[in-house]
Computed example of a mutant assay.
Amino acid sequence: MADFAASYRSKDGEILDEIVWRHYGNRVPSALETVLEANPGLADQGPVLPIGTLVQLPVIEVPKEAETVRLWD
């Protein structure tokens, strides 16, 4: 079972991509897919979510940037 960072109720005219971007930003490339996995049936709602749709926003581990090695410094 996933740990949830937050729950969110959609407002008029909101789309899931926008909600996910506001919560996670661009730090997590697979955030939308992870949110859809955590919310079975949410994709069936269509692109514009009905008002009051509950969206569970799971805790997603932010990948650390790889350390770069510079050979000629």
Rank of each mutant, 00 (worst) to 15 (best):
P40G: 11
Y8W: 03
A31C: 08
P58I: 05
P50G: 07
I51M: 06
V69P: 06
S10G: 08
D17L: 12
K11N: 13
F4E: 04
V48W: 09
L32Y: 05
R22M: 07
E61L: 07
E67A: 14
A38D: 03
E65P: 04
V69K: 10
L36G: 12
L49N: 14
E33F: 06
G13Q: 13
V48S: 11
R9P: 00
T68D: 11
A2R: 13
E61S: 06
R22Q: 09
D3R: 13
V28A: 02
D17Q: 13
D17R: 14
K64H: 11
I60F: 07
A6C: 03
T34E: 11
I51W: 12
E67C: 05
V62S: 02
T68V: 14
K64P: 04
S7Y: 09
V69D: 06
I15Y: 11
W21F: 15
I60S: 02
I19E: 00
I51R: 13
G46L: 05
I51D: 12
Y24N: 00
L49R: 11
V55N: 01
K11L: 14
Q56A: 13
L36V: 10
T68K: 10
A6H: 09
P29G: 04
L57N: 01
Y8C: 01
P50S: 07
D12N: 15
V59K: 02
V55K: 01
V69I: 14
N26L: 06
G46W: 07
E37W: 10
T68A: 12
L71Y: 08
R27A: 09
I19M: 05
T68G: 09
F4R: 03
I15G: 15
I60Y: 04
R9Q: 10
H23R: 08
V62A: 09
P63Q: 02
P63C: 03
N39C: 08
G46V: 03
D17G: 13
A38H: 09
L42Q: 03
E61R: 03
A43Q: 04
V28C: 04
P50T: 06
P50Q: 12
P29Q: 06
Y8F: 15
E33I: 02
A5T: 08
K11W: 13
P58Y: 00
V55Q: 01
R9L: 14
T68W: 11
D3N: 08
E14F: 15
L57F: 02
Y24G: 01
G25W: 05
A66Q: 13
V62D: 01
D12S: 15
Q45T: 15
Q45C: 12
P47I: 04
L54A: 04
V35R: 04
F4P: 07
V35D: 03
D3H: 10
L16T: 07
L42M: 02
P63A: 06
Y24V: 01
D73C: 05
D73V: 13
A38Y: 04
E14N: 13
V48C: 07
V48E: 09
D44A: 15
V28M: 01
L16F: 14
T53Y: 11
P40L: 08
F4Q: 08
D73I: 12
A2E: 09
A38P: 02
D3L: 05
S10V: 07
I15M: 12
P58M: 00
V55D: 04
E33M: 06
P58K: 00
M1L: 14
I19W: 03
P50I: 08
E65R: 14
E67M: 12
S10F: 10
S7G: 08
V35W: 03
E18A: 15
N26H: 11
A38C: 09
T34N: 02
E65F: 12
E14T: 13
L57H: 00
G46T: 10
